[in-house]
Amino acid sequence: MKHITDDDLTLLFYGEHENPALAATVAESEELSARFDALCAELRLADSFVPPHRGDDYGADIWQKISPHLDGERVESSSRIKIWLASLSQPRFSLAGALSFVLVAALAFTLGRNGGQEVINDPGDPVNSTAATLANIDPNRLLTHSVSGHLEQVNLVLTQFANASETSASEAGYATDMLVANRLYRQAATTRGNHKLAAFLADLEPLLIELAYEAQSGSPATRERMQKEVRNGLLFRVRVMNKQLNKPQISV
């Protein structure tokens, strides 16, 4: 197997590694997991790089200062306007639960592909019986089940966020963890061809980024806008998606 470098782990941290199996490889190896945990811990310290707060009227102040200078020459549009703004926001990721999921899914896939031929169903042998159980796991069901658990946590944190009048120190921490999980689940959904679920998780990510980095340092107006966004639709969508995931007959 190719040596896993710290650069590979950095790409995994930012959810940009091209090899979807890397997360499972990391989760399988004690040494790689330790290296990955260290990278996460060190990079998370960078989150303390929080800018000073600016008040609600900051935008109006800026406008007042720049508006006298806007009479200069403008570059005029020459092309026909096509309207489509791509959504950005590819946030950072999370760990433990999501990595465990990736590991179990990878094992289930491998054992299932081998048809369980080498698995002896001896109920007295815990190793073989675990392997046999894993071989029978459907990775798609495992994915929906794991994402359902993830969405329950998201639902809980968003509900608390939507109703809290003040920021709490744990909010950003939860959001960062959820980002990690969300990214890994999104990648897993993409890999398994569940594009609807992947798209839904991608929609969730911008808000999780804001929660992780902006809710605490941003103005009360920013927080209010985010809370409104959560209350006016996102929370509902999370709950609906979670319900759909819990109905095994409905493909999402």
Partner: peptide, 24 residues
């Protein structure tokens, strides 16, 4: 930097292509 960037943005906004991201 913020003030200068907004002034530049106003001067250049006519060349902004709507198919790209405004945030970027």
């Amino acid at each position: 930097i913020v003030q200068e960037a907004f002034i530049k943005a106003w001067r250049k906004i006519g060349s902004f292509r709507m198919e790209s991201s405004f945030k970027s």
